[in-house]
Simulated scan of single mutants.
Amino acid sequence: MERAEAELFTDAGNDAVVRLPGRRFPGVLVQGDTLRIPSADVAELVELCAAGDLEEARHAASLLQDELGAMLQRTPMLSTPTESDTPSSRNHV
């Protein structure tokens, strides 16, 4: 195990926003028990799709999108990134 100091941008709750050394952008540290909730939501979504219940699947997907969107809104960008500057648009440290 390696110990490292991290910058904490929010309260140290179930989904704290932190930036690790050497990283340009902060990330969301989600506690394992909290991560089970969206994981269960995805499992429910898969079951609903398999059963052909698209109306309920859309509803479940919408709730999941809201939940993940709320986490994203807590993540401050240290600058105003361009599309080519965002973490998802390129492979960087």
Rank of each mutant, 00 (worst) to 15 (best):
L72G: 10
E67P: 00
L8R: 05
A16Q: 00
S84H: 08
R24K: 13
V17H: 05
D85M: 09
L78R: 07
G32D: 13
E44A: 12
T75D: 04
V17W: 01
R58W: 10
L48K: 03
V30K: 02
S89P: 00
E44D: 14
Q73A: 14
P38H: 03
A43E: 11
A50S: 03
A6F: 08
P38Y: 02
G13Y: 01
Q65R: 13
E5K: 11
S88N: 06
P76Q: 03
D53M: 00
V17D: 03
E7C: 02
G52T: 03
E67D: 14
D66S: 14
I37W: 09
I37N: 06
R3N: 14
L8C: 05
E55R: 12
L35A: 15
P76N: 08
Q31K: 10
E56Q: 15
Q31P: 01
S79W: 04
G13H: 06
R36W: 08
A43T: 09
A12E: 14
R3S: 14
L29K: 06
A40F: 07
P81A: 03
L78Y: 02
V46M: 00
P81T: 01
E5M: 12
R74T: 11
E2D: 13
R24Y: 05
P87S: 06
G22H: 12
E56D: 15
L63T: 06
L20S: 04
G22T: 09
Q31E: 13
E83Q: 11
N91C: 09
S62C: 08
L63D: 10
E2H: 14
L78P: 00
A4D: 11
V93E: 14
E2M: 11
A50M: 00
P38W: 08
V30D: 01
L68D: 06
G69S: 09
P38E: 05
V42A: 13
L20T: 05
A70D: 10
E83G: 08
E44F: 05
D85Q: 13
R36L: 14
L72S: 15
H92Y: 12
D53L: 02
A40H: 12
E56K: 15
A16G: 01
H92K: 12
C49A: 08
A40C: 07
C49F: 00
E47I: 00
L63W: 02
S79C: 09
P38F: 07
D15I: 06
R23K: 12
V42M: 13
G32C: 12
R58L: 15
T10Y: 04
L63N: 10
D11K: 15
